[in-house]
């Protein structure tokens, strides 16, 4: 046992203990840390290796390919490393990235912005619609809550494509909504709803709402309602109480729910493809088109890498909130 190494580690930990409270907690955890047995190592290894091989590796490869150019070959991109006459050449193409940012039509930049807009706006919509639902659910009596919970979750166990398909039938020119509105005499001629941004929003909210409601519901169940009574008792108005007591207490749920909607919505392909019109060129659709229609793999990779860069911050926020939850437990 290298005693000196142990002492050095302990000295380091002691120094950390004198640091701020958050670091301190981490250091305390380090102190109580026990040895990892070989059996545990084996258990760690299986999921770890799987994820390194099939999750981390692909992203390294995507990054590599984004630095090459398309070629008529199999696979359809230029090699980065070539050997010629005994000399190794590494050619990194940055064209894909410069193309994304300086394209004359601005298609890519526009669609990135459009995606951000749609994702943010849908997240807010989900939050505004989901919060009351989660609240109502959390305030039900346990027996009712069980039933309501099941009913709210049930649609999301059916196929995603089927749910989008259902909305296509509803939003069509001769669909049910237009029929009902016409029959009631509210409108004279059918409204054009399918293939508009409106339809995209409806689709996203419909499909992602459960991801918002679930974490909010869990957070609301844990709320200490005596704090709200205390706030009322001290003279806070309902609105003030809502924002100063209820919202902070459900913060973790709000963050988790928002991220669960925002991140996947940003790269959504199926919903804008089926419900959106020509205007709803979101980045997911661009990537799909570059890949399947233009067979430009390097450009598609570059589009994905830029999207990942945009998503880095929300993913970190989500990851941290998940970790906090795990640590609190």
């Amino acid at each position: 046992m290298p005693i000196s190494a142990l002492n050095a580690t302990q000295a380091l930990i002691r120094r950390k203990l004198n640091a701020g409270p958050r670091r301190r907690r981490k250091a305390e955890l380090l102190l109580t840390r026990r040895e990892v047995t070989w059996r545990e190592r084996l258990v760690i290894l299986v999921p770890y290796l799987w994820m390194i091989l099939f999750f981390l590796m692909p992203f390294l490869i995507i990054f590599k390919i984004s630095l090459s150019v398309t070629e008529i070959a199999i696979p359809p991109y230029s090699p980065i490393v070539t050997f010629e006459d005994g000399a190794m050449q590494i050619i990194l193409h940055l064209e894909n990235y410069t193309f994304i940012f300086t394209d004359e039509d601005g298609t890519y930049m526009k669609s990135y912005l459009k995606s951000l807009e749609v994702a943010s706006f849908s997240t807010l919509l989900c939050l505004f619609i989901g919060y009351p639902i989660a609240w109502a659910l959390s305030k039900c009596r346990p027996a009712t809550r069980n039933i309501m919970f099941m009913l709210l979750i049930m649609p999301s166990w059916t196929s995603f494509v089927v749910r989008i398909y259902a909305w296509m039938a509803l939003l069509k020119k001769d669909g049910l909504i237009n029929d009902v509105l016409m029959a009631l005499g509210i409108i004279d001629s059918p409204i054009h709803m399918l293939q508009t941004d409106f339809a995209v929003y409806v689709g996203i909210v419909y499909c992602y709402l459960p991801y918002m409601v679930l974490p909010l519901f869990t957070a609301l169940l844990k709320v200490d309602y005596t704090l709200i009574e205390a706030a009322y008792d001290l003279g806070a108005r309902p609105v003030k109480t809502f924002f100063s007591v209820l919202v902070p207490q459900t913060r973790s749920g709000i963050i988790a729910g928002s991220m669960l909607v925002f991140i996947p919505a940003l790269g959504e392909y199926v919903i804008p493809e089926l419900l959106g019109g020509k205007g709803s060129i979101l980045i997911g659709r661009i990537l799909w088109q570059e890949f399947f229609n233009n067979r430009d793999w390097p450009l598609a990779s570059a589009v994905a890498i830029v999207m990942l860069t945009i998503l880095a911050i929300p993913i970190v926020i989500f990851f941290k909130s998940q970790r906090k939850k795990a640590e609190a437990a």
Partner: peptide, 22 residues
């Protein structure tokens, strides 16, 4: 480890799909 076990849940499917194909 934690990141690998949470990220696949939220990552846009187009990215995961493209990455796995490559």
């Amino acid at each position: 480890f934690m990141l690998f076990m949470t990220a696949p849940m939220v990552l846009p499917e187009v990215i995961t799909g493209l990455a796995l194909l490559l």
